[in-house]
Structures are given as structure tokens and as C-alpha cells.
């Protein structure tokens, strides 16, 4: 008999630039161990996940973390009183900090999480990547956080164009001239704030790994992937699992050294000389995590088990050469549902 649990999940914006919520839910729903009730935490009235009743049992609107962690936690306490949440999986980078800070209180309430520690979260920030590379002896591109456009000019002494202009949480654009860099600086800064991270452009192919660390230095699972088709937003529309021992070795090395706790996505560039450069660590499971489930590593289920203190055996294999192909699908929803979520904040 399966164990009944209630899991609260955010990131249900299953749109053209999807959050990881629905793929995480699909993994948990396919668990052979748990019988989950899924509670959706949504920020917007039109987050598709709230209307995907096969995946999400009930959804609650929550305030943006930028409104203050006190208000967010008040809402979580209110939802917990109704739903008795066992595990909470935040899926947005921008909300992780608030939930990591609230971890002791969540624990007191009986809500389990399995998140990176604050030092782990902080040291892998894009703006700290050079120090991260040096500390763990990992190849990273040169990069520097800047807060003023004038600093772009100063960087020209050390960096050649193209340069990569990155937001602190999301967004990255490749600038081939100062003029372009300026445009991207303003565009990304107005969306995500400062600093902007300017990174040396490494020529090669982007490859990614989704992985799960147990917080004690062990890699519970890891699946490497190459994007087959990229949207104009730079998101994977399709991807394929790879057989690349070097990528796995690097993943084990990073998790082993950092004692990473929770899900992660490594963004890497493989150069023509077959060297791997780490360009980013996303501190959560990515939106393509369902590929790992399809390849034989149900990382969302394993994450829930770790959160609930079950012992989890590391995955040792996955299927190479299987693909995910993302598609869009129009759901028909009643006005009643939309108005219920909009006015009561519950669906």
C-alpha cells in the first residue's frame, strides 16, 4: 500500500517558458511509493497548473516573495491549516531564499523541505562563479557582476566580444558590441534588477545535467542532456539524454565537494577540445526534469523521500538517447473557475 502524503508545489506556470512545477508533479504522481495529494501554490490567476486538475488537486494563490517573507509565511500557515502539507517544493529561484530562511519555522509546523543550505545557495550565485570555480577547482568562464553601464566599457580591457550579459536570476543575452551590451544591460536590469553579470563567452556546445544531492556529498541521481531545439527565449523545446561520463564525473565532483542538498541543474559548455566549463548552477530541479523520470531516474520522488527522511539508494543508470519534446496545449476553462481563483485565491 502506498503512503499518503500532501505535497505543495510552486512553479505551475506551464507556459512557453515553463516553470518546473508540473514536471515535478508528474514525477511525484508516478511514484510507486507515495499516493500524493498535490497542492499548487500559484502567483498568477492564469498559471496553467491551477487548472490542470489531473495533476494538481487544489491550488492557492500566494503573495510574491518580494512582498515580504512574513506575508508569504502567513499564507503558507493558512494553507497548511487546511491541507496539512507534508512536503513543500518551491520551484522558482526567486522564492528559494524566502523558503530557505523559513526552513526552521516550516519544520516546526511539520512541513518538510529539501533545499540547499544558505551558504550553498549563496556561493553558487552567478556573481560568485569565479570564486566558486577557484574554490572547487572547476573550470568556469571569467565573469564579473556590474551595477553601472560604464563598467561595461572598463570590462572591454579584459574581455573580448561577444560577452554574455546575464540577469541575477534569469535571462542571458549574447552581446557582440558595446551598443548591444548596453541594450541588454538595461533590458535585463529593468526586469530582474542589479547586479548584471557579464561573462566571458565560451565557444562550444551547451549541455546540461539535472542532479539531486543528499546533502552529505552523495549524488542520488544525475542525467546529462543536450538541448535539441532552443526557443527564442533560450529554453529547450526538445532535448536528448547523453552518455557522457565526464559530465557525470563533474557532477559527482561538485556535489561531493559542496555536499549539495536538493535538486540542481548544471549548465555547462563543452568546448571543441572536450573541456567542460561550468556556466551556471540552478539551485533547483529544472523544467526538463521529467526527462530524467522518463530515463529511469524519478528525481522528484527521490527528493520527496529525502525531505521525509527516507533512505534513498542512488540511481546508477539511465536510458541514453531518449528525448523530450515539449508541446503546447490549449485547455478550455470555465469563467467560474477563473473567477473563483481570482476572487477567493483558491481553486
Amino acid at each position: 500500500m502506498k503512503t499518503k502524503i500532501t505535497v505543495a508545489v510552486s512553479g505551475l506556470n506551464n507556459v512557453d517558458n515553463p516553470g518546473p512545477g508540473i514536471p515535478v508533479v508528474r514525477g511525484i504522481r508516478e511514484s510507486t511509493f507515495f499516493e500524493p495529494r498535490i497542492v499548487g501554490l500559484v502567483y498568477e490567476n492564469l498559471e496553467p497548473g491551477a487548472y490542470m486538475h489531473d495533476h494538481v488537486d487544489k491550488s492557492y494563490k500566494v503573495p510574491y516573495p518580494s512582498e515580504g517573507s512574513g506575508i508569504l509565511m502567513e499564507r503558507i500557515r493558512d494553507i497548511h491549516a487546511k491541507e496539512s502539507i507534508d512536503v513543500l517544493i518551491p520551484n522558482f529561484d526567486s522564492e528559494l531564499y524566502a523558503f530557505m530562511k523559513a526552513e526552521p519555522e516550516l519544520k516546526r509546523l511539520g512541513i518538510h523541505t529539501f533545499l540547499p543550505t544558505l551558504p550553498q545557495f549563496e556561493e553558487r550565485h552567478k556573481s560568485n562563479l569565479p570564486e566558486f570555480g577557484e574554490k572547487y577547482k572547476i573550470k568556469v568562464p571569467k565573469s564579473r557582476p556590474i551595477t553601472r553601464i560604464q563598467e561595461l566599457k572598463e570590462l572591454e580591457e579584459d574581455y573580448d566580444y561577444p560577452m554574455v550579459i546575464k540577469g541575477k536570476f534569469y535571462d542571458a543575452s549574447i552581446a557582440y558590441s558595446f551598443e548591444q551590451a548596453q541594450i541588454y544591460f538595461n533590458k535585463i536590469a529593468s526586469k530582474w534588477g542589479l547586479p548584471i553579470v557579464v561573462q566571458e563567452y565560451i565557444h562550444g556546445t551547451e549541455v546540461n545535467v539535472v542532479a539531486l544531492g543528499d546533502g552529505r556529498g552523495n549524488t542520488i541521481g544525475a542525467v546529462p542532456m543536450k538541448k535539441q531545439y532552443i526557443t527564442d527565449k533560450g529554453k529547450a523545446w526538445g532535448g536528448i539524454t547523453l552518455d557522457d561520463p565526464k559530465m557525470l564525473e563533474l557532477t559527482h565532483d561538485i556535489i561531493g565537494q559542496t555536499h549539495w542538498r536538493g535538486g540542481m541543474e548544471l549548465e555547462l559548455i563543452r568546448t571543441d577540445k572536450k573541456e567542460l566549463y561550468l556556466i551556471e548552477i540552478n539551485p533547483r530541479l529544472p523544467a526538463w526534469v521529467y526527462l530524467a523520470v522518463g530515463a529511469g531516474q524519478n528525481l522528484p520522488e527521490a527528493l520527496v523521500k529525502l525531505a521525509l527522511d527516507y533512505s534513498v539508494e542512488p540511481f546508477t543508470a539511465y536510458t541514453v538517447g531518449i528525448l523530450f519534446i515539449r508541446y503546447s496545449y490549449d485547455m478550455i476553462c470555465s469563467l467560474e473557475e477563473f473567477q473563483t481563483l481570482s476572487t477567493t485565491g483558491v481553486l
Partner: peptide, 8 residues
Amino acid sequence: VFDPTTGD
């Protein structure tokens, strides 16, 4: 033809 190392 599938190259599992590069994904090509």
C-alpha cells in the same frame, strides 16, 4: 546515426 556523447 546517433552519437550518444554529443547527442547529435
